[in-house]
């Protein structure tokens, strides 16, 4: 559950900016196309060491963004199509590399990539001098969350400007591209760390759904960030408890709960606006 909360929080912070930049689907693409990076790192180091995997993933995250831009600029492919072509290509490469490097005896398979299982990360404990310090995924995700929080707090001004009005930011002399790549790089790092826990697809759920719910009820950026963290906490806790009771997959349940929270927020908002209208009418 702690893993879910940590992953969820850093995802929802990053996701808020993706939503505002209308580049959620790029996040989706990246979460898939970092696969070859992971596999390559794995092949070279022959272990699941965090650092090489992170580097591999970050490299492929940036490669994907560059490939998408190449398709758009050099051949006028629509943005959506450029994204679709890129991530399917990289994902396919990743799967092929897995098939090439093994005959199936590496413990990353397509199943794991697609679904992930948060519960199994609990088994991977790390002991220092015999004392239990935490599970491996908590230990890797915690520093990333810290980086994300620092990035958001100190980069607030730049992120805000580049997210809301790219041209204005450019006019102020801010390096828009650098902010873009920094954000997307953090997204790919988070995506990778979340891979084994929640799977490639559901990472996007962590990235999108809580901030989307928050965006429904507020226009204020910092409120949106706080609210999306709250939504994340609710879905992480609720999802884990439900999943344990029903004995089903935890990450899937968390995303489902987040989705249901979104639908509830949405209908709540509809009811609110309707009752406001009725009030106004009765006043008249």
């Amino acid at each position: 559950m702690l893993t879910a909360v940590l992953i969820g929080t850093s995802c929802s912070l990053l996701g808020s900016f993706l939503i505002l930049r209308k580049s959620v689907m790029i996040g989706d693409a990246i979460s898939h196309s970092v696969l070859p990076g992971i596999v390559l790192a794995f092949i070279f180091t022959e272990e699941r060491a965090a650092l090489p995997i992170l580097i591999g993933a970050a490299v492929f995250g940036v490669l994907t963004t560059m490939f998408i831009q190449f398709l758009q600029r050099k051949s006028n492919v629509q943005e959506g199509a450029a994204i679709g072509i890129s991530f399917t290509f990289f994902f396919a490469l990743g799967v092929i590399m897995i098939a090439l490097s093994t005959g199936g005896n590496v413990d990353i398979d397509q199943d794991c990539v697609l679904f992930g299982e948060i519960a199994s990360t609990y088994l991977d404990k790390i002991f220092v001098n015999g004392y239990f310090v935490g599970t491996r995924s908590i230990l890797t995700i915690a520093p990333v969350l810290l980086i994300v929080i620092l990035f958001v707090v100190f980069g607030m001004k730049g992120l805000r400007l580049t997210s809301f009005n790219e041209d204005y930011a450019k006019a102020l002399g801010i390096n828009v591209n650098a902010w873009n790549y920094a954000l997307l790089m953090l997204v790919s790092i988070t995506a990778v760390l979340s891979f084994e826990a929640v799977g490639a697809v559901l990472v996007v759920g962590f990235l999108t759904i809580p901030p989307a719910s928050a965006y429904l009820i507020t226009n204020n950026l910092s409120k949106m960030l706080w609210l999306s963290v709250v939504f994340t906490l609710l879905s992480a806790v609720g999802g884990t408890l439900l999943a344990l009771t029903l004995d089903v997959t935890i990450s899937g349940m968390i995303v489902s709960v987040a989705g249901i929270l979104f639908l509830l927020t949405w209908s709540g908002k509809i009811i609110m606006t309707k009752s406001k209208k009725i009030e106004k009418l009765s006043e008249v």
Binding site: I19, K22, F115, L207, S251, G252, M253, I254, S256, A258
Partner: peptide, 28 residues
């Protein structure tokens, strides 16, 4: 059509929400 969320967010939302539901069903 009904909210201020843009197409890409709506797409990502539907995609992951349904997929999440799917994984729950599958586990079941």
């Amino acid at each position: 059509a009904k909210t201020k969320l843009k197409t890409d967010t709506a797409q990502a939302f539907i995609l992951t929400f349904f997929f999440g539901l799917g994984t729950v069903f599958l586990a079941y």
